[in-house]
């Protein structure tokens, strides 16, 4: 267990997130142990798939209070894809599921008329300067795969936007909390740069 913890609740992209962090040369642990997660200097909250199922699993594993505590204590936390969506108040996926309510707002379905999931490389337009995008050109392409998107009530939390039928917040953040809808671990060199930036931001190395 190093400085970095990846929250283990069986998310599909756990392995690739771990591979990316290892590739960058950091010490990382995949764990569902609350103490280990709370001891880490930086925590990654991965995810892919359905938000409702994720909430169910997090609840069953007793991880909801852990994520809430990380956010309440303003600890460096990086949410990815579903790890972003469950930070919101709730999601319309499968009717309505209450989520962690760390960021006020709803997770909504992408508009119909376009192919869903939104799958592939799309531009991330930086709206607000943030250390996460240090050295990354504006409107760079990152890999997305999702059918829902988060809509924060407080628009000042939006760090970057992406357009797919609707302009949505592809990166949001507050204090040391930051979360992206795209998959940096599947976005080539620029994606690895996002992780590197996050660790620097978290004061590691």
């Amino acid at each position: 267990m190093g400085d970095i913890a990846i929250i283990d609740y069986g998310a599909g992209n756990l392995r690739s997130v771990n591979n990316a962090v290892v590739k960058l040369g950091y010490q990382v642990g995949i764990t569902n142990n609350a103490e280990e997660i709370l001891r880490a200097k930086a925590v990654i909250f991965p995810g892919v798939g359905a938000a409702g199922d994720t909430m169910f699993t997090l609840d069953k594993m007793g991880l909801m209070p852990v994520v809430r505590q990380l956010a309440a204590e303003n600890r460096p936390l990086l949410g990815i894809c579903i790890g972003l969506q469950v930070l919101y108040t709730g999601t319309e996926e499968g009717g309505w599921f209450d989520c962690l309510d760390i960021i006020k707002g709803r997770v909504k379905k992408l508009p119909s008329g376009l192919k869903v999931p939104h799958m592939g490389w799309n531009q991330v337009k930086i709206k607000k300067s943030h250390p996460l995008f240090e050295g990354i050109p504006d409107s760079s392409n990152f890999y997305f795969v999702h059918s829902y998107y988060g809509d924060p009530e407080d628009k000042s939390l939006v760090i970057a936007e992406t357009e797919y039928g609707v302009k949505f917040a592809s990166c949001v953040g507050r204090g040391n909390l930051v979360a992206v809808q795209f998959h940096p671990e599947r976005s080539g060199d620029l994606g690895l740069q996002i992780y590197e930036n996050f660790f620097k931001f978290a004061g590691i190395k």
Binding site: R15, S16, N19, K23, V145, E185, R186, S187, G188, L192
Partner: peptide
Amino acid sequence: TANQIFIP
């Protein structure tokens, strides 16, 4: 492959 390459 997955250890080295970070695209889908």
